[in-house]
Each structure stands twice: as C-alpha cells, then as structure tokens.
Design a protein around this nucleic acid. Structure first.
Lengths: 341, 341
DNA sequence: AGTGGTCGCTAAACTGATTTAGCAGAGCAT
DNA sequence: ATGCTCTGCTAAATCAGTTTAGCGACCACT
C-alpha cells in the first residue's frame, strides 16, 4: 500500500530547499521568514509530485495521529449504532480526523485487547460508547488521554453525551394530552430492572419520570401500567392483549420503545381495533419500523447522528463536564387522534 | 494519550542490553544467538515496565500498520452494515489487526478524501464495501495495495465477496415447492432497473434467476409477478393489494426482500387473511423484522458476518480472484404451510 | 571599524522502533 | 603464536517527518 510515495525530502530536493523549509511551508508555519518565492517552489514541487505526508512519521514526532478510537460494547454492529457512527464520522471528517473502530462485545478480555490495540496506535482520544443508555465505569487504561462517553455516563465525571429521555417522556405524554386523552392512557414497558439499575439503563427511568411529570402537571393518572421483562415486540404484543382483556379499554398507549409498539400494533390488529381511531399509540426511539407501520407510528427519535457528532466535538474541541443532553425530537405521525366518542 | 509509556530503550536499559537485543527478543526472531538469560531479562523488564511498542514508530520502519481500511459508500451506518462490520472486526482481531472506518456517502469528493485519509495512514489494505450488492469501479488510488470488494464486484477482477443470491432464489422457490405449492405462486418485487443494471443491483437478477431455475426444473410457472419501484413496505403493501384483487388468489408469495414482505403482511391482515393458513410468504434478507412479524417470516439470511469475515480473510491471507460466494441460509419459520384446500 | 539586528535559510537532533553490519572474546586447530 | 570459527552481543543506519539552534549575508548605527 502506498509504495513509492514522494517524501518530504523529494519535495525539498525538487524545490531546491531544505526539508526544514519544505516542512515549514507545507505546514503554513507562522513567523518563518521564508520568501514568497520559496513558498511557490515548495507548493509547486509538492503538487507536481503528488506529495502527501506520511502520517506515521509525523505522529512519531508530534504524538498526534488525527485518529480517534471509537470503542463500544456492542453498539457498532447493531441497527442502533449506524447513526452514532455516521455522526461521529461526519464530525471527525470536518476536523480532518478518522475513526478507528473496535468492539468489546461486553467481554473483558476483548475490551482489554481493544483498548491496547487503539492505544498502541497512539489515538488522540477515545469515544467509549454503550448500546444501552447506562452508567458504566471506564477501564482505567484509557484515562491517560481525552475520553468522551457516548450514550453513557460514569462516576468519574467524564464528559458524556446522552439523549434527553426525560424531556422525551414529557413530549410523549404531552402529545397525548394535547389530543385530549386523559383518564385512559396506559403504559407498556415498565421494567424494574431497567428503571432501578443505572448500570442497566438510564433511559427507562428518565422516560418514565418525564411521562409522570407531564401527567402529574395535568392532574392525570395512568389507567394501567404493564411490566415487560424485555422491550421486544412479543412483550408488547402480550402486554397489549392483557390490556384489552381489562374492563376499561385504554384510549391511548405509551410504549417505552418502538418494538413494544410494533407488538402492540399486532395485538390491536388481531383484536380488530384500528389505530388511531380506536386507540392512539406513541412511543420512543424512531426505529425505522416506526415509519413503516400502518398507520405510521408517532415516536420520539433517538438523535443518534447528533449524539455521535457531539461526542467528537466534545473530544476534540473540549467542553463541559456535565452530561451533554441531546434533544429527542417528537415525530408526529398517524397513530395519534383524539379519544373515540 | 499514552504519555509516559515505556520505550524499547527503557526496556533495554533495564535489562542491561542493547535496543537491538531487546527488539530481537521481543519479536521472537529466529537465528539470533541471544542467551536464554538475555531472553529472561528482556521479558522481565518488558513485563515490569508494562512495555507496549509504539506502532507508529514500528510502522515507519516496517511499512506495516496492522490496520485495515473499511471504506464504504454508505454501508457503515445502515442497519445492514452491522453484520459486515462485526464479521470484519472479529476476523481482524483474530489476526491482530484493527479497522479504520470511513464512509463516502456516494459522494466523489468524500470518497477522494476518505481514500487519501486512509492511505496517508499507511493502511495495509482496503476493504471497499457497497450497501447494495452491485458492480462498481474502484478509485484507482487504492490499487497500489491489496483491495477486497465487499458486497460488490468490479470489472478489474479484484477479489470480491458476494452473497449467493442465486442459490438463495432456488432455496426460496424450493421451500415453497416442498410445501406443495405449484400453480399459485406469486412474486412481489420485480424491478427492471435492479435486474438489468449491475451497477444498481446484482441481487435482484440473481434472486430472480434462482427462483426461475427452481420453478422451471419443477415445471411450474408463476401465477403473477408484481413490479415495484422500490423494495419498501409500502410497495409490498400495494403489490399485495393488487394481487388480492385478481380473480385467482395466490397460495404463496415470494417477496424479493423482507420489507416488501412486511408490507404484504399488512395488506393480508387488512384483508382478513391469515399467514400461513390462507397464504404462505417467504422472502430474502432476514432483516430483524422477519423474526418479529406474526407469524414469523421464513426468509433467506444475508450472511453479513460471514461476508465481513471473508473479506478480511481474503485481504490478509490472500485468495481466489473469482468472486467468493457466501451461502445465504434459509430460515424456516411459521409463514410456510401447504396450500389451503 | 565594530556592533547589533534582521532576513532567509539549513544542519542536525529527535521521535521509537527495526535491521544491517560488524566487534570482542572464547575455543580450537595448526 | 597465528588464524579461524563460533558465540553473544551492539553501534549505527534507517524510516519520514518536526523542531531546535544557529549560520552567513546584509544593513544600519555609532
């Protein structure tokens, strides 16, 4: 790869100047007194030779690699990761950086390996990303340089980027209230583990909190709350069936994520009920399926790209130490309507 | 990052030997005549200092970085990419390599930039990946070193990795034949553009070919074929509705991908028909939604992890120049049954 | 004439590894 | 005593850049 690339020495020779001069000109160093003509000659030579610096050599001296490590537990390879990586890639490119991606798969040995691998390559900083929004402790090895937590926080007070699930919870509840739903709103996706253990999830608690705040403010209480061991379609399906067996049918459902909502749709369809005429549905994440459902599902979007971008910005430009909360925009879609009759 | 790491010189000093000796011992060089005791001392010193070589320095000398570039048009950030990247990451780790990921977004300027960025970092090879299985021409700049095409082929005869869509087509059709479907099989997702232009898609043509071969072999002809401008749920929905308006109702549907099948499910549900009792459905991709649908959707899985893995293997271990076809396993699920009546 | 300052530029050190060439000493044969 | 080989190790070059220290020429001023 990259055999016979022109070196700085080649450029200098062609320009009839020293390596020093060539280096200074190409780096646009201020305060050097090289003549305008010398500049011309160096630029011309570099251009002609198609010169590109060898970054390995440069970083040996400067201890900068213009490379960021993106270390994740498992996020890099899930459908949720795409946006995070894309945002990070974009922001990195804008700053002339590049991303070295590794995955730990939640395995301590792999994590150790991944971190050594990136540190050996002298990365300028590490973005440590988690698939589920949660609290974690970062491996001490990476604390020697800049670190930003993505979709996670740590007790160390490291800079971090999180989605604003609390406000999302409020938006979701408020959207239902605005449509006139009050005393027949049900919630699918309560989960003690997720709500109580910040190392498992921060989102569940925050979403729930936001929802309850907004309902409290309106003097509304939930008609029912369904607990789910996981947030997968089958659990949403089961929960929805359970709800339909109760005496009072809900006028609206809040699902803790879109997959639950997908399951709820299935149960509603089987029961011969239509969304939103019979029941409104709203949820969280803006998974691609949300837009594919019939009718399309109102939801609050996890701002993955923004988050990835913000992480790079915090890492390279520095920034606040308190968690950086990224808003989750509400996607108003067809699954909302005023309560029937 | 990585300030005050011990250097080889530190190790050598502590071991009371030269850098040369330390380097040779740590690299396990054969044919050197260093004493067993010297080995001990070097290992002990390295261990004690937590020595890790500076790979920038090493690669300056050796021209190897143990780093692979993963350049993709847009694949890195879509739900389809996860598996490709995960497989590549796994295989790379097994070979002590790491992945530098960039995305071109299909934009020539970005592509140019991405390629320069990775070449400047002296990567050992490039995996050039496409989101849609298709033919493309690779930018000449990367031809200076090893290249493997992932989910793509090129006219240059570069090594490439493709899913075996043709065989998948056969599997799909055969699965229906085995269930006894014959003269009432319909196909959703014909698309001239995808079928005829290899720069748009190779999969459509191959899948179709496989399907038709299997049907021809059984002396069966399709009941109907629906053309779709895109392979999204809404198109599957529309196509399915069209099919249900025809005089003879199909006993089974083949969808060219799972999203189309998802749309078909929606139309079937609205029409009050049940899968698989009234109509069997089978498709391609094994998108996560396939398992979430009710009933779960039989499909042929795009072997993303295998493909990513294979790409790294071809790149590092060398290999055949003809396209490497990775089998697409059939996922037998609940959406298949013998025709009604 | 001597001193000092600015201008325009370069030699050489430095980064941390690998690799080539070769040295000192021991052992042995002549 | 001389020459030879083998053993066990090291000095120095090298990779391709950046950075420090400073040199020679020219000018101005006292």
């Amino acid at each position: 790869m990259g055999r016979n690339r022109a070196t700085l020495a080649d450029v200098a020779r062609k320009a009839g100047l020293s390596k020093t001069a060539a280096s200074m000109v190409l780096n646009g160093r201020e305060g050097t007194r090289l003549s305008a003509e010398a500049h011309q000659r160096v630029f011309a030579a570099a251009e002609e030779l198609g010169y590109r610096p060898n970054l390995a050599a440069r970083s040996l001296r400067t201890r900068k690699t213009a490379t960021i490590a993106f270390v994740s537990d498992i996020v890099a390879t899930t459908r949720f990761a795409g946006g995070l990586i894309r945002g990070a890639l974009d922001a990195a490119r804008e700053r002339d950086h590049v991303l070295l991606i590794t995955e730990t798969q939640g395995d301590a040995t792999f994590e150790q390996y991944a971190i050594e691998a990136v540190l050996d390559r002298q990365v300028d900083g590490v973005i440590y990303a988690a698939m589920a929004t949660r609290r974690l402790t970062v491996p001490p090895a990476i604390l020697g340089g800049p670190v930003v937590l993505l979709n996670a926080t740590s007790p160390d007070g490291l800079p971090s980027v999180l989605p604003d699930d609390d406000r999302a919870g409020r938006s979701v509840a408020t959207a239902l209230l605005e449509h006139g739903h009050r005393d027949a709103i049900a919630l699918i996706g309560r989960n003690r583990l997720k709500e109580d253990d910040p190392e498992v999830s921060l989102a569940a608690r925050a979403r729930l909190h936001g929802i309850q705040q907004a309902l409290d403010d309106a003097g509304v209480t939930l008609l029912a709350e369904c607990f789910c061991t996981e947030w997968l379609p089958e659990h949403g399906y089961a929960a929805m069936r359970g709800l339909l067996n109760r005496p009072k049918r809900p006028s609206a459902i809040i699902c803790m994520n879109d997959r639950l909502a997908f399951g709820a749709y299935q149960a509603l369809g089987e029961a011969g009920l239509t969304v939103p005429e019979d029941i409104s549905v709203i949820s969280f994440d803006d998974d691609p399926i949300a837009a594919w459902l019939r009718p399309s599902l109102a939801t609050t979007a996890l701002p993955h790209e923004q988050m990835g971008r913000r992480a790079v910005e915090l890492l390279l430009d520095g920034g606040a130490t308190e968690p950086s909360l990224v808003p989750m925009p509400l996607r108003r879609r067809r699954s909302l309507a005023p309560p029937a009759g």
